[in-house]
Design a protein around this nucleic acid. Structure first.
Lengths: 221, 221, 221, 221
DNA sequence: AATGAATGAGTATTCATTCAT
DNA sequence: TATGAATGAATACTCATTCAT
């Protein structure tokens, strides 16, 4: 792309060095794949290394233990998620039902559909073995998520669009099918064929539609 | 040793024998607890034996391997669940909304709230390592479950109570929060304190209310 | 040895059971040999197991780690030593020089010449890696040992046989060649041939003679 | 590159080169410290490099293996010792007792008290794993040392000062406490507090006094 | 010459499984 | 049947050594 006669090779670091900087990321990606696919215990450290194209020893050069690797995978992928979202709420101007629907679809597109969503499955599967991570997930993902949904519902109520529902449990009722969808995608879906296939977009659309209808104040004559 | 004509009631077997017959059950129960709590890999065979009050060797007398024990735990507890339910649908006479709500509450009382619900968590956590079990679960639980819900929804539509929704995805939207609740109970709930506590009955009530409202045909003036 | 027609087989425990009770001892003995011969780090756990005639796994059935095995070896062999000795001092009636000489010879016969003396070499070699053990050795062996020698020297002084020497350093001067002898036996002696061979008994005799002569009050005309 | 006839003073090497020449020495010193402190096996190559202020790779530039580094450390520090001593014997004119005492004090000041004495501890600790080094030590240190002491004792006998003792074992009786002192300094002393503290100079003085008194012919009236 | 990223052989330790009693 | 001592395959992790830069 640069001019054929350009004499600027500077920005091209040595292979070795580029490698070094890329390593942790490559390892985390390989680890994410395998942990999600097989679970924490069934994933061997060497497998991760091999999939990342390095040797066993190299893995332990970057992560002091399998457990720390696991934690790093979780943090890495949660961090990605946490920061995103929330901003959509601000500038939005239409009916809250549309906002809610939009947010759910966005969540799927940006998190649920990505590899990172395997993290949710992982956390839930391994929560009792890594209580520290469970709490981390709770604080960094669950709570911010519920807060966001709560604000949206409150907006609907405040604007007279939604009924005055039991906020706490409604929030979870809104989110539950999303979590379910992610779990499903990473557990039964890959195994079990056509029969109960779920189309995520349609599923979310249907769920959103039911929720919004269920939340709306009944129009009176 | 006892007199050949003794009238010792047949139904009172010797302690030993009673024990013997109870063994597999005791082992399965202990195994269920531990598998649910810690996952398949993190559960040691000896732990199961100890909790069941027998020695390591005895466990392998009844189950040829840890894997078979796991499968037995799953089958045993699925069997329990599958047969129940379904009958409620027949005799019911009121509005379908009430029927749906009733069914969900029953499901929680009879399955979700019991130890056996740990099976769902187990299956989902270990699905990729035991695809055979995942398929078994799919066939024996998911499909019958969705069928049941489908029949209920169809009843509502047929009776002109419910809108004519996308049946397939609505069925899953109805069930998703129930599955979510079970997963939650067996993963994050035990770790993470007060903050996001979910009251199952209220949660289901709220979910049911939203669903039913979302399904009902809008009353026209 | 027992009467050929004796019908008393009772005291002969089953092979298995006898084994079980003997195991820890057999393992400790094998470990002592290898640790002394090759040092802590250069001794592989499996080697110990094999020499004891069991498998790797069995070793860890009796000792939770290599480090604990090492500590057990030390404690086992120190315990043996500590309790012995000291009693000789009481009943003795002759000249203190003879007592001192006797004690040194006994020490060699009962400890220095046995395999257990390898422990001293071990402790000294590994002291900085196992400070806890070093302190244990200090408390259980060095201090009681020096106390004993101190009492003997004091007896000599009190009885007017010995000069009134710098007690503290004299005690160590008495003991030093004994420790040296043990170190020598377990380090250079096995490697290096005839040249500097030391005959322990003669060496101790010579050392004792020099010490006693050095301690005695000069006979005046 | 520099002008062939440049007059840059030869004795002022470039920093780099001076460094380069110093490297092996710095590495050997760092290695001595660590080997003595922690033993051969417990000392990691990288630690040595870091303490010497170079990278791991550089260590292997100068020494082909950890084992060779170890041997070099031993040889280097033995060489230092061996050449010294011996000369004192020649010019000495007073009583042999004084000579012996003087030699022992000198030995401590020039070897025992220095870091190099750690070599003796090292050799004794690792003798069985490095028999070749043990033999080297035997030839280069033990034998010359005993020869020296023997000559001194012989001088005392020849001059009618000392009794005609069992030369071989007396030589070792003279040396044993010195070796002991070095071992003590590098093993238990650093771990174990005040209780059995030994003051080297006083200890040697006491030992020398006892030896000389033990060796002297009894003065007859 | 110097670096430090990468390697992989080597070792402690775990745990499902077996089997003599 | 029941036991629990014994086994050994499997796996995380270390560290001396190499080599591209």
């Amino acid at each position: 792309m640069s001019h054929p006669l350009s004499v600027v090779p500077a920005s091209e670091p040595h292979k070795r060095e580029r490698r070094k900087e890329a390593r942790p990321g490559e390892l985390l990606e390989a680890a994410l794949d395998l942990f999600v696919e097989k679970g924490y215990a069934a994933t061997r450290a060497e497998e991760v290394a091999v999939r990342a194209g390095v040797s066993k020893g190299t893995l332990f050069l970057y992560f002091p233990s399998k457990e720390e690797l696991f934690k790093a995978v979780v943090r890495e992928n949660l961090a990605r998620t946490v920061s995103e979202g929330a901003s959509a709420l601000e500038g939005f101007d239409g009916p809250t039902g549309d906002l809610l629907t939009h947010l759910m679809q966005q969540w799927w597109a940006r998190y649920g559909a990505t590899k990172a969503s395997g993290i949710s499955k992982l956390i839930i599967s391994e929560a009792s073995n890594f209580p520290e991570l469970a709490r981390f997930y709770q604080d960094e993902v669950v709570t911010p998520g519920t807060d966001l949904v709560r604000r949206v519902l409150q907006r609907g109520i405040d604007r007279g669009e939604f009924r005055d529902v039991d906020m706490h449990h409604t929030v979870h009722a809104v989110m539950a099918p999303l979590i379910f969808l992610v779990m499903w995608k990473h557990s039964l879906a890959p195994c079990c064929g056509a029969a109960n296939t779920i189309d995520p977009e349609k599923f979310i659309a249907q769920h959103a539609d039911l929720m919004v209808r269920g939340l709306l104040k009944e129009k009176e004559a």
